[in-house]
Design a protein around this nucleic acid. Structure first.
Length: 905
RNA sequence: GCCGCAGUGGUGGAAUGGUAGACACGAUGGACUUAAAAUCCAUUGACCCUCAAACGGUCGUGCCGGUUCGAGUCCGGCCUGCGGUACCA
C-alpha cells in the first residue's frame, strides 16, 4: 500500500490511526515475540540431547518457584534471565546444556485456600502452575520443557518418599517428642512464621509450646562434612559464612561434676575447660531432668514456680538478651572436679536444654552471661585468667591471657596461656575420668513433620506402637481425598480424621496398623529436584546413574539469598546421604552458586506530617508516636540539597506548609521492597504488554550487577526499549518494512571490524564473568556506531545479531530470518574475536606533573612505545612545560601506551 | 553485640593501581511537525575566572589517616545503610 496516499485519504478525526499505520513496520514486539516462542516450542529448539556425550556438559539451574496465586513477580525473571543468557551462550559455544524448570508446588497457601473455599489444593496448584508456565514462556526462556518436574506429582514424590525410606534405614530418621507451636483456640499447630509475638497471626490467639510426636532427620550426623566440604565450593563468601555460623562448631570438653549428697553426675559442655577453677556455681536448664533430683524440699516450690514460668515464655522471650537474667537456687550443690569445691546449683532459663548437655559450669570471671548472672544474684567471681578486671567485666580473651589461681594437688595451669591450658586440662580430665575433649554444634536435627494435608505423606505405618516403613514397591503413597481441609482439632494433620485411610493392616503380619498422619515439609521436594531433571521419567530410582554421572554437579545455580542457609543446607545433607548410598557420584550438588539481589519498587519521595498536619523530618517521623501522614511527591516537587532531598520552594504552599521555612523541608527518598500492601508491585505481564519480553529481559540485566539490590524504574525499561527500536531501525526500513538498503554485501572496513571485535570480546568476557549489564552497554555502543555507517556489511550485522541473541532472543531471531538466514539463530556458533583488529592505530598519553593531568599527547602506534620520544614530546607540551618550569624533574614515570608522570620539586 | 556485603553525578550504574563518571535514565536547548507523540542533534559532576564564550583553574568516589610517582581501587581506624544471626556455654 502507498502509505502516503492512505494518510491523505484519512479524515482529521481519524488521525490517531495514521500513527498506527506508520507504526506497523516499526519495532513491535507483540508481533514477533509470540511467533518465535511458538517456533521454539514446536521445534523443540532447546531440547537437551541426552545421548550426546561428544560435547562438554553444562548444567545451569534456577531455583524453581512456588507457583503462588499472585503469579510471577519481576524478581523471578531476574535470575532466570541471567541463567537463560548463560544457557543460550553456552549452547552456541558448543556445550551440551541442561537448563530445566519445574515447580515447588506443595505449600501452605494452597491449603489455606482449600480451608477457606473447599477447593482441592491440587486444583489451585495446577491452575497456578499453568499461569506460571505461560508467564515464563512469554519471556522466551530456553528451558527444555520436556523435563518439567512438579513436586506434587505422585511420579515425583514417589522418589521423595523413597529417599525418606533410605534415611530411615540409615538410622537418620527417627521419632521424638518435640515442642511445637500449639494454638488451643484454633486447634492447630502453627509454623514459626505464623506466630507473631507469641500470638497466632490469624486471630491473635495465644500460642504455647506443646510437645508432640514428630519425625526428625539426623542432619547433625553430617555436621562435620557439611562444614568441611564448604571449602571446595565456588559460592559467595557470605553464604558459606552463614552456613558455617549455622552449623556453629565449637571445640571444648565435657566435664563431669558429682552432685553433693546424691549418686548423680551433672555433665556440662564448655569451650573453656581451662577456667574450671573459676567455676563458682552451676546452672541447669529448667527442663533438665536432674532439677527434680537436686532441688531441696525448702526450694522445691520456688523452683517449680520458676520452671512453670519459664515454660510459658516463648523462645523469643527466653532468648531476649536485653532482659535481665532470671534464675532460682535449687538448694543443691555440686563438686568441682579440679578442687573438690562445693558450688551451688541454680536453675535459669539462660541455659538452653537443646544445646550441649543442657547444663553449664558458670565462670563469671570469664563469661559475660555468667558475669551478669553472678552480679544479679550476688554469686562470687574468681579471676583465673589474668589480663582484665573481673570486678568490672568478664575477661573473655582466649589467646593471650595467662592462667592464675588454677592449681590443685597434682595439676596446675598457672602461668600457661589459654590454648596450652586447655590442652593440659583436657588430658588431665581424661586421665582422671572426669571428662573428655568434645565438639559441639549449634546445628540441630531437622524437624521433618508437619501437621498438614498438602505435603508428601510420610511412608510409615505404626504396628503395635512401633514405626514400620512402607515397602518401596508400595510407593507412591498418595494423599487420600478429604471432605474438608480444616485441622483435626487435636493438633494432628487433617489426614488423622480419615478413619478408612488411617486404619490399615500391616501387609507382612496382617496386624492392624495406623498410618503416619504427619506430612513432609516443603523443603523435602526441593532437596533433590535438581536430580530429577536429569532423568525425569526414570523408573528404577530417583535418577538414572549413567546420566547422573554425566550431568552432575550443577555448574551454575542461581537464586535468592533467602535460601542461603536452609534450602542449601538441607539439599546438601540429602545429597551426601545419597552419595553414601551410591545414588549420586559427587559429594556436593551445586558447584557454583550466585545469589541475585532483590528488586525493589520504584523510588518514592515522601513528605511526612504529624496528625495535626505539622511538618516532620524523616527522623522525627520514625520516632513519632501518633499517626504519621505520608504524602507522596513527584519529581517536580523536590530538589536536591547538600544533604538529601527537600521540598522545592514553589511547592511548599501546595502542601500547606509555611513558606518562611522553605528549603528546610527535608523529605525521604528511598525505594521499598515490593509488596501488595504498599502497592508497588510490578507485574511482568504488564511490562511485556507495553514493551515486550526482550525489553523486560534487557532491563532486568541492564539495571546493574546481578547480585546487587536495586530499585525498579519504568523509565529504565523505556530506555532499553528505545535501544531495541534503534536496533530494529538499523536493519528494517520502517516505511516499507523491508530490509534497509544500506545493508549490503561488502567487505567490512577496518573501523567496522574493530568495533565488532571489541564487542565480541567484551560481550564474551562479560557473559563469562556474569557482568550482563556491561555486556549490554557494549551492544549499545556497537549499535550507536552502526547507525552512523552509510554501508552496513551484512557479515558484520549478522554477527551482531548472534551477540545480541542471548539477551534479546526474539528480535534477534526475527532480524536474523529477515536477513535471509534459514535456521534458528540459537544454532549458530558463538563468534571468536581476532586480536589483530583490536590493536589501536594510535594511543593517547595522559601527561601528569606530580600526579595531576596537565595535558594529553596522541601518538601513532609505531611511535607510542619509544620512551625517549614520548618523554621529550611530553615535556614540550605547552600545558606541561609551564608546570615543569616550577622546579626540577626528580623522577620520570613512563607507562607504555598509557601515561607519563613527571615528579617535580 | 557478632558475621557478611555495600557507600561514586539529579537517578541506575562504569572504571587489570594509570585521563573518575562508560552505557543508560532524567533535565535543558535545538531540528522535524499546524500541534503532539515518536525520532534525530547538542549540552549536562560542583565551583571559580569571564558581559559571554573559548581557554584555563580549583575541588570531587561516606569520614580520618597511611602506602605509592600516581588510590574509587591497596592497608589501618571510624561512620552510615542493607542482609544474616543472636544468652549456643
Amino acid at each position: 500500500m502507498d502509505y502516503k496516499k492512505a494518510i491523505i485519504s484519512l479524515s482529521c478525526e481519524a488521525k490517531h490511526e495514521t500513527n498506527e499505520i506508520l507504526r506497523m513496520s516499526e519495532y513491535n514486539p507483540s508481533n514477533i515475540e509470540p511467533k518465535w516462542q511458538s517456533y521454539w516450542l514446536e521445534n523443540k529448539t532447546f531440547k537437551t540431547d541426552d545421548a550426546d556425550r561428544s560435547r562438554p556438559k553444562f548444567y545451569i539451574l534456577d531455583m524453581f518457584p512456588y507457583p503462588s496465586s499472585a503469579g510471577l513477580h519481576v524478581g523471578h525473571p531476574e535470575g532466570y534471565t541471567a541463567t537463560d543468557i548463560l544457557a543460550r551462550y553456552k549452547r552456541m559455544k558448543g556445550f551440551n546444556v541442561l537448563h530445566p524448570m519445574g515447580w515447588d508446588a506443595f505449600g501452605l497457601p494452597a491449603e489455606q485456600y482449600a480451608v477457606k473455599t473447599g477447593t482441592h489444593p491440587r486444583v489451585t496448584t495446577q491452575y497456578n502452575i499453568t499461569q506460571f508456565r505461560r508467564q515464563l514462556q512469554a519471556i522466551g526462556f530456553s528451558y527444555d520443557w520436556d523435563r518439567e518436574v512438579d513436586t506434587t506429582d505422585p511420579a515425583y514424590f514417589r522418589w521423595t518418599q523413597w529417599i525418606f525410606l533410605q534415611l530411615y534405614h540409615q538410622g537418620l530418621a527417627y521419632e521424638a517428642s518435640v515442642p511445637v507451636n500449639w494454638c488451643p483456640a484454633l486447634g492447630t499447630v502453627l509454623a514459626n512464621e505464623e506466630v507473631i509475638d507469641g500470638k497466632s497471626e490469624v486471630g491473635g490467639f495465644p500460642v504455647i509450646r506443646k510437645p508432640m510426636r514428630q519425625w526428625m532427620l539426623k542432619i547433625t550426623a553430617y555436621a562435620e562434612r557439611l562444614l568441611n566440604d564448604l571449602d571446595e565450593l565456588d559460592w559467595p563468601d557470605s553464604v558459606k559464612e552463614m552456613q558455617r555460623n549455622w552449623i556453629g562448631k565449637s571445640v571444648g570438653a565435657d566435664v563431669r561434676f558429682d552432685v553433693d549428697g546424691h549418686d548423680e553426675v551433672i555433665e556440662v559442655f564448655t569451650t573453656r575447660p581451662d577456667t574450671l577453677w573459676g567455676a563458682t556455681y552451676m546452672v541447669l536448664a529448667p527442663e533438665h531432668p536432674l532439677v527434680d533430683v537436686i532441688t531441696t524440699s525448702e526450694q522445691r516450690d520456688a523452683v517449680e514456680q520458676y520452671r512453670k514460668d519459664a515454660s510459658l515464655k516463648s523462645d523469643q522471650d527466653r532468648t531476649d538478651t536485653r532482659k535481665k537474667k532470671t534464675g532460682m537456687f535449687t538448694g543443691g550443690y555440686a563438686v568441682n572436679p579440679v578442687n573438690n569445691a562445693r558450688i551451688p546449683v541454680w536453675v535459669a532459663d539462660y541455659v538452653l536444654i537443646s544445646y550441649g548437655t543442657g547444663a553449664i559450669m558458670a565462670v563469671p570471671g570469664h563469661d559475660e552471661r555468667d558475669w551478669e548472672f553472678a552480679k544479679t544474684f550476688g554469686l562470687p567471681i574468681v579471676e583465673v585468667v589474668a589480663g582484665g578486671n573481673v570486678e568490672e567485666a568478664a575477661y573473655t580473651d582466649n589467646q593471650d591471657g595467662v592462667l592464675t589461681n588454677s592449681a590443685s594437688t597434682g595439676i596446675s595451669l598457672d602461668g600457661l596461656n589459654v590454648p596450652e591450658a586447655k590442652k593440659r586440662i583436657i588430658t588431665w580430665l581424661e586421665e582422671q575420668q572426669k571428662g573428655r575433649g568434645t565438639v559441639n554444634y549449634k546445628l540441630r536435627d531437622w524437624l521433618f513433620s508437619r501437621q498438614r494435608y498438602w505435603g508428601e505423606p510420610i511412608p510409615i505405618i505404626h504396628v503395635d506402637g512401633q514405626p514400620k516403613p512402607v515397602a518401596e514397591s508400595a510407593l507412591p503413597l498418595e494423599l487420600p481425598e478429604v471432605e474438608k481441609y480444616e485441622p483435626s482439632g487435636t493438633g494432628e494433620s487433617p489426614l488423622a480424621t480419615i478413619e478408612e485411610w488411617v486404619n490399615t493392616t500391616d501387609p507382612e503380619t496382617g496386624k492392624p496398623a495406623r498410618r503416619e498422619t504427619n506430612t513432609m515439609p516443603q523443603w523435602a521436594g526441593s532437596c533433590w529436584y535438581y536430580l530429577r531433571y536429569i532423568s525425569p521419567d526414570y523408573e528404577l530410582g530417583p535418577v538414572d546413574p549413567e546420566k547422573e554421572k554425566y550431568w552432575m554437579p550443577v555448574d551454575m545455580y542461581v537464586g535468592g539469598a533467602e535460601h542461603a542457609v536452609l534450602h542449601l543446607l538441607y539439599a546438601r545433607f540429602w545429597h551426601k546421604v545419597l552419595y553414601d548410598l551410591g545414588v549420586v557420584s559427587t559429594k556436593e550438588p551445586f558447584q557454583r552458586l550466585v545469589n541475585q539481589g532483590m528488586i525493589l519498587g520504584e523510588m518514592e519521595y515522601t513528605l511526612f506530617k504529624d496528625a495535626d498536619g505539622a511538618y516532620l523530618s524523616p527522623d522525627q517521623a520514625e520516632r513519632y508516636d501518633g499517626e504519621v501522614q505520608r504524602i507522596k511527591l513527584t519529581d517536580e516537587d523536590i530538589e536536591k540539597t547538600s544533604t538529601g532531598f527537600a521540598l522545592k520552594t514553589d511547592a511548599v504552599q501546595k502542601y500547606g506548609l509555611s513558606e518562611a521555612a522553605a528549603g528546610t523541608y527535608v523529605i525521604e527518598a528511598r525505594s521499598y521492597k515490593m509488596s501488595k500492601s504498599r502497592g508497588n508491585v510490578i507485574n511482568p505481564d504488564d511490562v511485556i504488554k507495553e514493551y515486550g519480553a526482550d525489553a523486560l529481559r534487557l532491563y532486568e540485566m541492564f539495571m546493574g550487577p546481578l547480585e546487587q539490590v536495586k530499585p525498579w524504574s519504568m523509565r529504565g525499561v523505556e530506555g532499553v526499549f528505545r535501544f531495541l527500536k534503534r536496533v530494529w531501525r538499523v536493519y528494517v526500513d520502517d516505511r516499507t518494512d523491508e530490509l534497509n538498503a544500506d545493508l549490503v554485501d561488502v567487505e567490512a572496513t577496518r573501523d567496522q571490524l574493530k568495533v565488532l571485535h571489541e564487542t565480541i570480546k567484551k560481550v564474551t568476557e562479560d557473559i563469562e564473568g556474569g557482568r550482563y549489564n556491561t555486556a549490554i552497554s557494549q551492544l549499545m555502543i556497537f549499535n550507536n556506531e552502526a547507525m552512523k555507517w552509510e554501508q552496513k556489511p551484512k557479515s558484520v550485522m549478522n554477527t551482531f545479531l548472534v551477540l545480541l541473541s542471548p539477551f534479546a532472543p526474539h528480535i534477534a531471531e526475527e532480524l536474523w530470518s529477515r536477513l535471509g538466514n534459514p535456521n534458528t539463530i540459537a544454532a549458530e556458533n558463538w563468534p571468536k574475536f581476532d586480536e589483530s583488529y583490536l590493536v589501536a592505530d594510535a594511543f593517547t598519553y595522559a601527561i601528569q606533573v606530580n600526579g595531576k593531568v596537565r595535558g594529553t599527547l596522541e601518538l601513532p602506534a609505531d611511535k607510542a612505545t619509544d620512551k625517549d620520544l614520548v618523554l621529550s614530546m611530553a615535556k614540550a607540551e605547552p600545558g606541561v612545560a609551564k608546570y615543569l618550569a616550577e622546579g626540577n624533574i626528580v623522577k620520570e614515570v613512563f607507562v607504555p601506551k598509557k601515561i607519563v608522570n613527571f615528579v617535580v620539586k
